[in-house]
Structure formats: C-alpha cells, structure tokens
Design a protein around this nucleic acid. Structure first.
Length: 876
RNA sequence: GCCGGGAUGGCGGAAUCGGUAGACGCAGUGGACUCAAAAUCCACCGCUGGAAACAGUGUGGGGGUUCGACUCCCCCUCCCGGCACCA
C-alpha cells in the first residue's frame, strides 16, 4: 500500500488554496509594511497609480507585476523597500458614467476603488496599503489647493485667456476626445474655438532646467529624454520686426525665426487669425472677416491643425522689410499659431516647405536666397535640400552673399540690432500649463470672486475647498454652477457676499506629486514631512510609454516648484524610469453590407488551422460563420478585444497570470495576448509543482554536495548555474522574459538529471533552492509554499528575505569547450579545445581537424580568425 | 504634418562588444499511456529541393562596409505611441 502524502503537499497544483494561504501569511505578518530605517539602503519602487475605471485591465496587471517583481527582487537583495498604491480618482470618465447611469461620480469612483483594490490584493502584490491615497479625497487635494496658492504668491500661477473647444448647443466646453471630426460628440454641432480666462502654471520658467537636467537622468530611457527635449524645444533664433504705418501710427509686426539666414527671401508675412493685425484688417474687409471667423471653427488640436489644408487670405496691409525696405504683404494663415512665438511668421517660400506650398497655391513670389553646391533649384517642386543648413551659402542676398548658415545669422542679427529692429533670441516650444477645467469632478481652484475686491485667494485656514460629492452632471456644463451651497461665500478681504470659483484643476495636477505624498500619507498638517527625505526620490518608476511627455514633465516641474518652496530637497522625482509597452489583442469584426460594424471578443471566436499550423480562418463560436480579422490593437472597449484579468485569475491563479505577463515579451515592448501562452505558463507551474513533490522527501533529508559529481550530474549543475548567471544578467536589464526562460531551462535540466546517480538529491536540493528564489519575485505564491515544504525555510528563513542566489565558478568550470568552426564564413561544424587553449593552439587544432581539411579542399589557409570561447573562421 | 519607437519561423519572442539566427514557450505533426477522453510523457518541427546524406536560401524591402551583419552606414515601405482638455 502506498504511503499517503502529507496533507500540505498534494499531488496536484491547486493555485487557489496556496495563493490564499500565502496572502493570508503576508497579511498577518504585515510583511509589506514599509518602515523608515536609515541603517539600510532604501528602494522606493512605484508603478503609476490607476484611474479607477471599474476593473483592472491587462495593462494594469502588467504594470504592477513589473513593479512587484522589482520590489521583491530588491527585498531579497537586502533593500528596505517601499511599494505603495493609490488612485488617480478625478477625471472625465466618472462624469460620463454619471450621465449614463444617473449616479454621482463620487459614488461610482469609490465603488470602483473598492472592487479594484480587491483585485489587486488577489494578485499578491507586495503593496503597503497603509499608505493608500485617493486624489478625490479632501485630505489629499487640500494640498493641491495649498500649493496652488503658494505658486500664485510667487507668480508661478497666473491668469490669462486660453482657447477651448466650445459646443454651441450644449453650451459647454469639450475635451479634445469629445470632439469627433470637428463636431461635439453628443450634439453633433460644429465645435467653435472660444477664448476664456484660465489659470496657468509657469512651467516655462523652468524650461531651461527641465531641459538640462535630462542630462542628469542616466536611469531614463534615451527615447523618453529625446521626446521631452524635443517637446521643450529650445531653439536659437532671431526675433525681429517689420515696421509699418497704419491709422497714422508707426507700428511693428514682430516675428521669430530660426532661419534668419533666409531673411532676404521673404516674400510675404503670415499672421494667426487671432492676431490683432488680422482683426484690424477684418474690420473693413467683410471677406477677410468671414475667413477669420472660419478659422475659429474646428479643433484646437495640434495634430488637426498640422494636417488640415493650409489656407490664407491677404489683409491688404503691407509692412516694410527691415533690411531691404521692400514692401511685403501680410496674410492671414490658418496654420499660424497664436500661442507660439509672436503669432506671426516671416514667409520664405523658397526655403520653408509649408511656405513653398502656400506660395504655389496663392501664386506668391518665390525667391531663392541660399544655395547648396551641386544642387539645382527649381520652382516646380519642393526638394529637401532647400531647407538645408549644412553646407548652404547665401545667394541673391546682397552683402550676405557667400556666408554660411551661422555666419549669415550673426551678420543679419547684428544689422537688425543696429537698426533697433531685432536681436538674437532663445525660443521655447514649451507653453505654460493651463490647469483650469470647466468641469465638476476635479479639485476646486481655491479662489473667490468678489465684486469689490476682485479675485481673492481662499485663506489657508479655510482649506480645503471641499467639492460636494452628490452632484450628477448632465452634459450641460459644470453642475457646481447650480449649487448655491458651494457658490455662495463671503469675501475673505471685505466680508461681503462673494462667489466661489467653479473651475477645477487638470487631473495632471493630482498626479504631479502623489509619489511624494506616499512617504507621508497620514500627515494632516503638512503636504509632505520629514519622511520624504528618507524615501524620495523614487528609485524606480514604472508606467506606460504614453506618459512619456505630459505626466512626466509636469511631475518634474512640480518637484522643482516644491523644491524652490523649500518643501523637498531633491531636484528630480524619478531616478530610474521603465516605460512599459501596451497590451494588445487581435480584433475580430463583421461588417454587414448595410448597418454598423460589430466587433467580437476573441474569446467568442474560434481559429482554424491547416496541418502545418497556418491560420486559415476564424469563425464565431455562436453561429459557426466566419468573422474578419482586423489585425492587432490595444485592448479597448471600442474594439471589444479586452481580456478580463479576473477570469484569468479565477481559472489559473495569480501566479500563472503574473508568469505569463513576464514571459510573453520584455517589459518595454508591446505584449500580445495569447490564451495558449497562458496555458503554457500554467503547465510550467504544474511541472514545477510535480517535480518538487516528487523530490520532496529526498531533498528534505539530502546531504551536502559530494566532492566529485558524476559527469551527468555535473552537467545538470552547470546548466543550473549557467542559467542563473544569465538570469542575473537579464534581471539587471529588466528583461524578465528571459529570466522566466532561464527558470524553465533550469527545471528542464533538473528533470533530466539521472535519479539513481550518486548525489542526485544534493543537486536537486541546490537546484531547487536556486530556482525557487529566482522565480519567487515572479510567482511568489507557489514559491512561498514550496520553499517551506522542501524545508528551506528552516535554513534561510522566509523566502521573502532569502539571500539572492549567485552562480558559483566551481559549478561552471569545464575542462574542454566546443568552438564553432567556419570555413570562409560558413558554418561547417565544431571543434573541441582545452578550456585554457591559446589562440595559436586553437588555430592549430582547427586547421588539423577533419572538417576543416574537408572544406578547405587542399587550398592553403589565407588566415584564421579566432574568437575565444566562440568560433574559429578559416579563410582560404 | 511634427516628435519618438518598432518590424526576426504558423505565433510570442532569444541572440550581452559585429561571431553557431530561431534559445524558451505556444501552435502543429507523429508516437506512448488510456476502454475512451482529459492530463502527462517522448520525438519531429524556418523555407525550397532531396528518400536520405546534403545543398541552396533566410532576420520588412533595396544598396554598402566586413573574414563574418538581426546587429554598423545610406535610402525606402508599413505598423505603433505622443501632439498640450482621455488618463
């Protein structure tokens, strides 16, 4: 009769039981509670907090698994780790949900938080929940308001007008995503641009530091730094004026250009529709007035402005060229942005592509003023070199003829300066950050409007200005405007009746400093306290690449503003940054001859394959009829290609979900969803379980490694250590997919080890102790369980704090190594050489080998390339 | 349009400094076990030709550098992210 297995080590891998048990153990021992401890190096690992949209999506699972793996890895490396979690809880979707379900955004948000928190717990993340925060709580956003007032005092926050999308039917401001093809999403009305007063944060005051400090962020991906640098867009140019006389007054039309070397090629100027000169010209020109009006319709998005048809109209106003005194006509162009530079540009159609096409369209003169030797200029079509700076020389430019790009700019800037009509200037593409939103579900801007005293800041002792949580928006503007209990207040200055500001803050404000708040989450009297000094800056920040510019730039700015207010002592919030790729899945749809396209979730679709495994088609499970494939795309509601993590966890367990997420692709790349890939991950964990169960008894009682192992076992041990070496290298690169591969290879090797050979138990014992520790950051539950079951805990303690394994040279040593043998660069075989052989010895052995002799066909060797440890290439 | 990134078998991906392309896994095919199925295990598995040995070919496309190129250089195509009120 067979011996009954101990009750805690069942034959079958049952993730639900062991995961619950592991999570209960962590919870009862407060294992993830982070406590400041100056005697140990700290590691603050942060994943971007989620918007509580309802339930976790795969992107969250991926993001938080990456963070959790790093956190657990560093804990085993001896760091005092902090991994907190919170909620980016203000935002538009809550208002949309409110409209759809007639439920207040607050309630919807809090319900979502409760559900998603449960999901995060079930994934076994090593989070310190004691530091949880939600940006929609008054004790959090109070400090948004407080810092805003400090910025106002310092002149870092100020008011000016800004352009917004206006829906004339709903009488409301629309977000860019609510404008579809230039029309309001709900009303279908053509959207207008409207200028309204708004509050701005002077991020441009920090432009220079935000740019140069990128150089001090070696832990950031190059591509993110490049994107930010381009976004900030420092350009050196010349600001100068075209003088003109109008209405009996001497005026100047100021423009900025980075190509002052082409100034002699100016044939017209263009101003934005909002430019004062355009308004002045439209006053007595109805056609122009109509055109200016037309320019006000349509989207405010840069992508739309850049791709729309370039249109213009002459104003009839002429300005004088500052160097030639020629008269140049001013046009209104729909492509000139009021918000950038001076809202006016000089046009040099010969050397600017946009100006070139504009000039061709309206038959304006084109005058070549730079030349590149060997190229010929033609008015027929635009050529790339027309805009070259390198190797270009001025022509048809009078006294500037023959000068190169930089020399010409120097000379021209000096001449403009002498005439008091311009000078060199540094220009930034970065604009100040408009934070006003005409929406309800956000942080109230702490200002009061008084008829007598004007706009008055709310006194600190009256903070926070609390947002009422029972409003239900209906799409017709901010519901706060209908709330007298919020609106009515007394003026802090004169005590008279006053009205509260109803605009709320951009949600990017909320997310610009939450990482600091985690360090002092319970601090009631200060935005941040002493503990920030211990934990900050964040050692590792992890989030989607879609945040590469805005969120990360705003956070960097906010940190510098807090620093300059004496609140924190660091310059940059995130020392290292990992930008994770998106999670994608296949899109299936049917498009009936008439009617709307309908999308089908991949779970409802069955795939057809031929004998060779090639895809031949796809059918809907429900009716067996074919569906079309729309390629691969980001998981989204609109394409119905999302996979619910909850179903995955319930069917396979958290460890399988986590393992698959790490195995499927490296963190920075996109991840394609695959149901069968999940099966494979599950199979691996089952195999791990079965192997551990099979050797449990022998491993528990195993002696140490013998002096000399039989060759077969030495090879297995070498394989384990070799893969550990590889995995440690990959861990350093955050390449967790190959760490997972290495773990699989280790298990493959251990399974192949001859069971009856002397020393098998010792090799299995060492191998499993390495494998479990290596895997524990990725699949913590099963590793926690097996670590205890196999008796490792008695020696090394809880696997959470077990020392990270290192490969041993003794285990890696080999007497003989195999080198690849090439003849004329073609792979022909392999030769065995002693491990310590010199290049000369290797060459000799290779030339003498049978394979080399065969493929050299009796010809003498011209040379031999020896790459130690790799290959020999014989060239004949 | 501008800025940034990517493309490797049927699929996800690997290849550390220019040195065996396709590790590991999935799918597929054949087999073992089973009354049968599931699960599990073993073998094969880039493409073309070939019974096989083997030969040729192959990292989005075109050109170049090199004894040797997925990797470096030049040109092109397609896909993805961002573009300031989605978060």
């Amino acid at each position: 009769m067979q011996r009954k297995p101990p009750p805690s080590m069942q034959d079958k891998y049952a993730p639900a039981d062991i995961e619950q048990a592991a999570q209960a153990h962590w919870e009862s021992s407060a294992a993830f509670r982070a406590v400041e401890d100056p005697s140990r190096p700290k590691y603050y690992c942060l994943s971007m907090f989620p918007y509580p949209s309802g339930k976790l999506h795969m992107g969250h699972v991926r993001n938080y698994t990456i963070g959790d793996v790093l956190t657990r890895y560093h804990r085993m490396r001896g760091f005092n780790v902090l991994q907190p979690m919170g909620w980016d809880a203000f935002g538009l979707p809550a208002e949309n949900a409110a409209m759809a379900n007639n439920v207040p955004p607050a309630q919807w948000t809090y319900d979502n938080i409760a559900y998603m928190k449960k999901q995060l717990r079930s994934l076994g993340f090593a989070l310190d929940w004691a530091r949880e925060l939600a940006t929609c709580r008054p004790d959090y956003y109070k400090w948004n308001q407080w810092l805003f007032l400090r910025m106002l005092e310092k002149g870092l926050a100020y008011q000016k007008t800004g352009v917004v999308n206006w829906d004339p039917v709903d009488q409301t401001v629309l977000a860019n995503e609510q404008v579809i093809d230039g029309r309001g999403w709900r009303t279908g009305a053509v959207v207008e641009k409207r200028e309204i007063p708004m509050y701005y944060l002077a991020i441009t005051k920090y432009a220079d530091e935000l740019l140069t400090a990128l150089g001090g962020l070696p832990g950031w991906p190059e591509r993110v730094k490049t994107m930010q640098a381009n976004w900030i867009g420092k350009s050196y140019g010349v600001r100068f004026a075209f003088p003109y006389e109008l209405d009996g007054k001497q005026e100047k039309l100021w423009v900025f250009t980075t190509r002052a070397d082409t100034i002699m090629g100016v044939t017209f100027c263009a101003v934005a529709a909002e430019h004062p000169l355009a308004a002045r010209a439209a006053r007595d020109n109805p056609a122009l007035a109509a055109f200016v009006e037309e320019c006000k319709h349509g989207s405010v998005m840069e992508a739309d402005l850049a791709t729309m048809e370039k249109k213009g109209m002459p104003t009839g106003i002429f300005v004088r060229h500052p160097l030639t005194d020629e008269m140049v006509e001013v046009w209104v162009g729909n492509y000139v942005l009021m918000g950038y530079g001076e809202g006016a540009v000089m046009a040099v159609p010969a050397h600017d592509e946009r100006d070139f096409h504009f000039a061709k369209k309206y038959r304006l003169p084109i005058k070549q003023v730079i030349d590149v030797p060997g190229k010929s200029f033609s008015l027929d079509a635009w050529q790339e070199w027309y805009a070259d700076k390198q190797g270009s020389v001025c022509v048809h430019s009078g006294r500037y003829d023959g000068l190169g790009y930089e020399a010409a700019i120097d000379a021209i800037a000096a001449d403009l300066k002498a005439k008091d009509l311009g000078d060199k200037q540094v220009q930034w593409r970065l604009r100040d950050w408009g934070i006003s939103r005409q929406r309800y579900w956000g942080c109230p801007i702490p200002l009061i409007h008084c008829d007598k005293c004007g706009t008055v800041p709310v006194p600190d002792e009256q903070l926070p200005v609390v947002l009422p949580e029972d409003c239900v928006p209906d799409g017709s503007g901010n519901p706060l405007n209908k709330r007298p209990d919020f609106l009515d207040c007394s003026c802090p200055k004169c005590g008279g009746k006053a009205r509260r500001e109803t605009d709320t803050m951009d949600t990017f404000v909320d997310s610009s400093w939450y990482y600091s708040r985690y360090a002092s989450a319970d601090s009631a009297n200060a935005m941040v306290d002493e503990r920030v000094k211990y934990w900050l800056p964040v050692d590792q920040y992890i989030g989607g690449i879609e945040h590469a510019i805005l969120h990360l730039l705003y956070s960097r700015f906010w940190t510098k503003a807090m620093r300059d207010l004496g609140l924190v002592g660091f310059d940059e919030p995130f020392s290292r940054l990992l930008t994770q790729g998106m999670v994608l899945n296949e899109i299936f749809f049917r498009k009936p001859a008439s009617g709307r396209i309908s999308y089908f979730n991949p779970a409802e679709v069955e795939l057809k394959f031929d004998d060779k495994g090639n895809r031949t088609g796809a059918t809907l499970k429900a009716d067996g009829q074919p569906v079309e494939s729309g390629g691969i795309g980001t998981m989204s509601k609109s394409k119905n290609n999302g996979v619910d993590p909850q179903a995955l966890i319930e069917q396979y367990g958290a460890d399988t979900a986590r393992f698959f997420m790490m195995f499927a692709s490296p963190p920075e790349q996109t991840l394609e969803w695959s149901d069968s890939g999940v099966d494979g991950s599950y199979r691996f964990l089952k195999r791990l379980w079965a192997f551990a169960a099979g050797v449990r008894e022998t491993v528990r009682g195993a002696p140490g490694l013998p002096e000399k192992l039989p060759e077969a076992l030495a090879a297995v041990r070498r394989e384990v250590h070799l893969n550990l070496k590889q995995a440690n290298y990959d861990f350093g690169k955050f390449q967790f997919n190959t760490v997972a591969s290495a773990a699989m290879k280790m298990l493959n090797a251990l399974e192949r080890a001859p069971k009856d050979a002397d020393g098998h138990a010792a090799v299995a014992r060492e191998g499993l102790s390495i494998l479990l520790r290596l895997l524990s950051p990725i699949t913590p539950h099963v590793c926690h369980h097996l670590w205890r079951e196999l008796g490792y805990e008695a020696h090394h303690g809880d696997i959470l704090h077990a020392p990270w394994p290192e490969p041993l040279d003794a285990a890696l040593a080999q007497d003989e190594i195999e080198l690849v043998l090439q003849v004329n660069g073609k792979l022909r075989g392999a030769v065995k050489v002693p491990a310590g052989a010199s290049k000369e010895q290797i060459e000799e052995i290779a030339l003498a080998s049978e394979i080399a002799q065969k493929y050299m066909e009796g010809k003498p060797a011209k040379k031999a390339v020896v790459v130690p440890g790799r290959l020999v290439n014989i060239v004949v």
